[in-house]
Design a protein around this nucleic acid. Structure first.
Lengths: 345, 345
DNA sequence: CTGAAAGCGCTTACAG
DNA sequence: CTGAAAGCGCTTACAG
């Protein structure tokens, strides 16, 4: 690969490198004769010239790189959608995404080192994504660069951050059930102290009061948010109580609820309607019947974060002072086949 | 962020930048007094100096960046494991991974542009990953740089490539069933003309002959590799034939087979043993009973590709001439709970 | 309208 | 054992 430089273009066009730079970059306030412009462009095209972005970065002190530090890139498809959103937004702005998967175990010191590596690379900004919505303490050196949090908040409001509107998503889910006519709606919650647990419960309660349905604590349970535990919890609540619908903290618990319903001889959706949360395609679309659920805005959070970061380092943009309120992105309902009106009483 | 440069270190240590560079990089064949070394290191440490990698890249003509072009980053967790493998290998070698998600639709021209963007960034190598094992035609400009294919082969052998040992994985799966005592083993295959279809069938047939089991075409069927179609196919074969075990092309089809078995009143694993392929955690671990399956070596392919790429651009390394034979990585059996000996006949 | 020259932050022969 | 100087490929005042 013979590498062609700006000098080669200048020589072929018979102009100086200054002029080549001006026309190729369309430098504002610079008049260049049309005829010269064309000559330069032709020369660049015939040589297949593309500027060396490393040199450009050194000179302009802008690398065009944005770093994405993500926990657990591999284990969840969610991370993939964040990456995709950030990546497509980056490409749309001529930026390149550099990714590093954070060490497991939440080792703050290791994260600091990962961020330092990104800083040494001169990234223009860093995006910091956690694997699920939570409150975190950020590594100290994150303040050395425009940074934004994805799926995470941090108490002080020092950084812009974007998270799912958990409550709003739950409201959509439970309203969907209520609108279908359900009044005895169980809720299988997670038992971790994380924002989604509280937010989804709040949404559930909100809809109950909207519809004047009394809160019945026998219809609400909490367990680890996995299929096996969801199954046990569903079995208990479905056996003792007689809800006509159940809203599950996530699709994995809904998987368990499907099994419980099956074992109790309850047919979905005729005997029991179920709504999940997370929209994990591989579960939701392939359960039988397909699961109605609520989508998490991972792609959108990736886009939002990237664009917010750009706003922090773009020319002329002042880095906003903060403190920042977390931005909530909507969690839309994804209707499939697991909801029907309750049977006639 | 006041950025500290090599000059600041030199000034503080009372030496030239040349000397700072030598000691920090441990340039071979360079004698520096121990006392000077220490002074330099102390100065760098107290200033928190890290070299500007952009400047270093420009000067050494080595960016330390490797690009990963991956189709469909978001839709499959597989891509995540490739990224993770490549990323961790990159970090271990002081390299940084740059990722770009290829346009959907397999648009060769768009891929060419994505690769060009990577080349403009001066990446030292590019890794090209497809979303499932297949034969492809690579964009022409990929030959301008050390490149390796992940999960893909390309006819001419122009590029190193790494793919799963489909046949070996199928052999492990079917042997596992045969060793448990099964002799009537059905195979639910995919119906696409892709390497995995042929490889897994070959592995199935190989084990049959190892055990002297005649090939019975009534026990073998093919359909799209999704739960719904797997269900239909399983229902047909399980109703008409009476296999004691079924080997499924992938975990999604196995999901369908579970449902078929349930509807036919067959209990897994007592009445019917099932083995899948792909080890999609979210399915395999959460089906009930948990699915015994075969893992695809995505993480390992990511590592292999990154390290092979390094071998192509490292100092002193000659770029191997090719043609290259695809390297097969093993697909190990992941035993769970869906296999048992057949009932007494 | 166009170009000569300095400089981004490093590394690396070369000289002493 | 240590340092002065050139140069990687660009951009950008500045001058004409």
């Amino acid at each position: 690969m013979t590498t062609v430089g700006i000098r080669d273009v200048a020589r072929l066009a018979g102009v100086s490198v200054t002029t080549v730079s001006h026309v190729l970059n369309e430098t504002p306030h610079t008049r260049v004769a049309d005829e010269t412009r064309d000559r330069v462009r032709d020369a660049a095209a015939t040589l297949g010239y593309g500027p060396n972005l490393v040199a450009q970065a050194l000179r302009t002190r802008r690398s065009g790189l944005v770093g994405l530090l993500s926990e657990e890139i591999a284990t969840t498809p969610h991370a993939g959608r964040i990456i995709l959103g950030a990546q497509e937004a980056a490409r749309a702005h001529g930026l390149t995404l550099v990714i590093v998967s954070a060490e497991r175990g939440n080792n703050a010191e290791a994260h600091r080192a990962d961020i330092q590596a990104l800083l040494d690379r001169q990234v223009d900004a860093v995006l910091y994504a956690t694997m699920y919505h939570r409150n975190i303490a950020v590594p100290a050196n994150l303040v050395d660069v425009p940074a934004v949090l994805i799926d995470a908040t941090e108490g002080t409001g020092a950084l812009p951050s974007v998270v799912p509107d958990e409550r709003g998503g739950a409201v959509a889910a439970v309203r969907h059930l209520a609108e279908a006519g359900h009044r005895r709606i169980a809720f299988l919650n997670n038992d971790d102290d994380v924002p989604a647990t509280h937010g989804r419960l709040a949404g559930y309660r909100q809809v109950l009061s909207e519809y004047g349905i009394p809160f019945d604590e026998l219809l609400v349970g909490a367990s680890p948010s996995e299929p096996a535990e969801g199954y046990a919890l569903a079995k208990e609540i479905l056996s003792l109580q007689r809800p006509t619908a159940v809203f599950c903290y996530n699709d994995r618990m809904a998987m368990g609820a499907y099994r419980a319903a099956r074992e109790l001889g309850l047919s979905i959706p005729d005997d029991l309607s179920i709504v999940g949360f997370d929209n994990q395609e591989i579960i939701a679309a392939n359960l039988f019947p397909a699961l109605t659920t609520v989508a998490l805005p991972h792609y959108e959070m990736g886009v939002w974060a990237l664009e917010t970061a750009i706003g922090m380092f773009a020319d002329g943009a002042e880095r906003p002072p903060g403190p920042f309120e977390p931005v909530l992105l909507p969690c839309p309902l994804v209707p499939r086949d697991s909801v029907a009106p309750p049977r006639q009483p």
